[in-house]
Every structure is written in structure tokens, then in C-alpha cells.
């Protein structure tokens, strides 16, 4: 009986270790592409009260709906700046994956899109990294 418990303990410990290692090594770009079930928010929701609504989501992959305010390639990075429907002065800065450059060229200012990426936090704007343009999902 003792050896059985020991065996199960070793298996569980090994699985946890392997899962942690895989998680550490996982490419964040791949993580965003692979994650299907994500919290979906409007730009306005993220901006208006980040500490109340979304600070607990930092580090998570989220989907954000908004309007294209700007597409730029500053510092050799592909970036989409999303603005809300109600708020103008703050925005969501989405640092896009390299694979998205082709899609970005066809975007127009004011176009409604959904972007999926890792929420990093809040400065003047909301910062999302490893982003891809995604299909709309259901809102919370």
C-alpha cells in the first residue's frame, strides 16, 4: 500500500514538473494562438477601471474588441493601437506577432476588430503583447 502511494506521488510530482517546464518553455506567440477560451473585453472596459475590472487578468491571454486608431511599425515592431467606442484619450497598444504584418496592411482606421494577446498591464494605455487579429468572441 505504501509503495502504491509513493508511486502515485512520484507520478503526480513528475507530471507537475513536466507541466511547469513546458509552460516555462512555451513560446508566448504559440500560447496566444493555441488558447481558445479567453476572456473577451471591450477596449472601453479595459480602460475605464483597470484595477476593478481586469488587473486580475494580467498575464492571461485575452481578446479585446475595439476600433483601429493607428497601425505603425515604430522601432521595427508591428503595432496596432485600438481605441474604444466611448473613450478617446487612452487606448490599447497591441504589439503584434510578426506573422500578422500581412493582415495589418489591409486594416483601415476606424475598422472594428478583435485582437487576442497577453495582457501585460496598464500605463497611460493598456499594453498587450504577442497579439494576433482574431475573430470576435462572446463578451463577459
Amino acid at each position: 500500500m505504501k509503495s502504491k502511494i509513493l508511486f502515485i506521488g512520484v507520478v503526480v510530482f513528475s507530471l507537475l514538473t513536466i507541466t511547469t517546464l513546458i509552460r516555462c518553455q512555451l513560446d508566448p506567440d504559440q500560447r496566444v494562438s493555441d488558447t481558445r477560451a479567453v476572456n473577451s473585453l471591450l477596449v472601453d472596459q479595459l480602460i475605464l477601471d483597470p484595477s476593478e475590472n481586469s488587473s486580475h487578468l494580467i498575464g492571461d491571454v485575452i481578446a479585446v474588441d475595439g476600433l483601429v486608431d493607428e497601425v505603425n511599425y515604430l522601432n521595427d515592431r508591428a503595432t496596432i493601437i485600438l481605441r474604444g467606442y466611448d473613450t478617446e484619450k487612452k487606448a490599447v497598444i497591441c504589439d503584434m506577432q510578426e506573422s500578422q504584418r500581412g493582415l495589418m496592411d489591409s486594416l483601415e482606421v476606424g475598422q472594428a476588430i478583435t485582437v487576442k494577446g497577453v495582457l501585460k498591464g496598464f500605463l497611460h494605455d493598456v499594453i498587450l503583447l504577442n497579439c494576433i487579429i482574431s475573430n470576435p468572441t462572446n463578451h463577459d
Partner: peptide, 11 residues
């Protein structure tokens, strides 16, 4: 944001 630094390796 300190967690927004991008490294070559995830580790």
C-alpha cells in the same frame, strides 16, 4: 512595465 521586456529565451 517590467513584465513587458521581451527576451530571446522564455527561460
Amino acid at each position: 512595465l517590467m513584465n513587458a521586456f521581451v527576451f530571446e529565451k522564455a527561460l
